[in-house]
Nucleic acid binder design. Sequence first.
DNA 1: AACTGATACGGAGGAGCCTCCGCTTTCTCC
DNA 2: GGAGAAAGCGGAGGCTCCTCCGTATCAGTT
Lengths: 184, 184
Amino acid sequence: MPRSDAQRNRELLLAAATEAFREADEQVSLEAVAKRAGVGIGTLYRNFPTREDLVEAVYLSELDRLLASGAKLLAAEPPDLALRAWMDRFVKWVQGKQGMVETLRAMFASGAIVRSEMQERLAGAIADFLAAGAAAGTLRADVEAADVLRSLIGLITVGGASPDHSSLDRTLDLLLDGLRPRPA
Amino acid sequence: MPRSDAQRNRELLLAAATEAFREADEQVSLEAVAKRAGVGIGTLYRNFPTREDLVEAVYLSELDRLLASGAKLLAAEPPDLALRAWMDRFVKWVQGKQGMVETLRAMFASGAIVRSEMQERLAGAIADFLAAGAAAGTLRADVEAADVLRSLIGLITVGGASPDHSSLDRTLDLLLDGLRPRPA
DNA sequence: AACTGATACGGAGGAGCCTCCGCTTTCTCC
DNA sequence: GGAGAAAGCGGAGGCTCCTCCGTATCAGTT
């Protein structure tokens, strides 16, 4: 059990970060977050050793909505199309994170996300699509969800930077084509 | 025509950066590069407004070797296999850039490369593969080289982080599968 | 309620990034 | 070859990052 002041400070930080991220439309200074929470910068770093940790903690709760929408899509549409539609939502979700897109991108790029709780949940969602698609015969059965997530993240990482969506769209289509079963 | 001292300083900087990047195996401080070149930090920034600009300038010459190897592969193997083999070389090339991998990754991630001379040359090389593959019937004809490069960069961006190559390998295979002609 | 070890706090400080602008060097034209 | 303008120089300074460690606070124990 953590000490009571420690726990309180953690919550203050999380609240301050959430607000700060929402308000800002560019990189937020961590010192500013600490000040806003009324704690020292040292405390911030003790709780969230890297900027990424803080960002992940802030957005983990939001993730649920995204995952839920995936399940809904899967129930309503053929698995391959559902997956493609969900990819679009994922893209939008990431791009909606003004004020921390850059960090999110860095997380993706550095692979930080690849060892996080976020990644496990996302891969799980993709696995559902893949399993359904394999059963329906519209998606390959020999692909790992983690690889697909990796690819997806990679494409967003690069394509998300440009204001031109069409290129990202095309590369996502390309990815999906790679996921379709190949004729013998 | 630039002033003579300006030109000399530019060359000093380039030389210093090349050495520094080669020696270091982690992020190189720009102040260190400037000091090594014997110029002020201001001069460095005037010549290379961003770290990316400096990195690109240093590695542009090396790029030729990579492109040449692409042409050779294309002459020796079927286009689709040649492309896949070239992808592997590209990956290795990037990963060999210890001391600046992180920057290269950031360049890719931010899209800086996507508007650079590097990108034009790389896309050109890929276009050659695609054209040959389309003629041979082993690659789709309706894909843009820039999109393929984007995808490739995206995958490396994410997959390159982990020491485990197999995942990157699989995602590259996936990309190639997406590039194969689809049965009607 | 006082004691005390464990735990957590917080900010000073070292380092790098990048900008800005007063000063210096180079060039050009007479 | 000298004067003036244009171009370039360079480092101080403002900012953020992140670490480190002396100080303060908490929570069991007596």
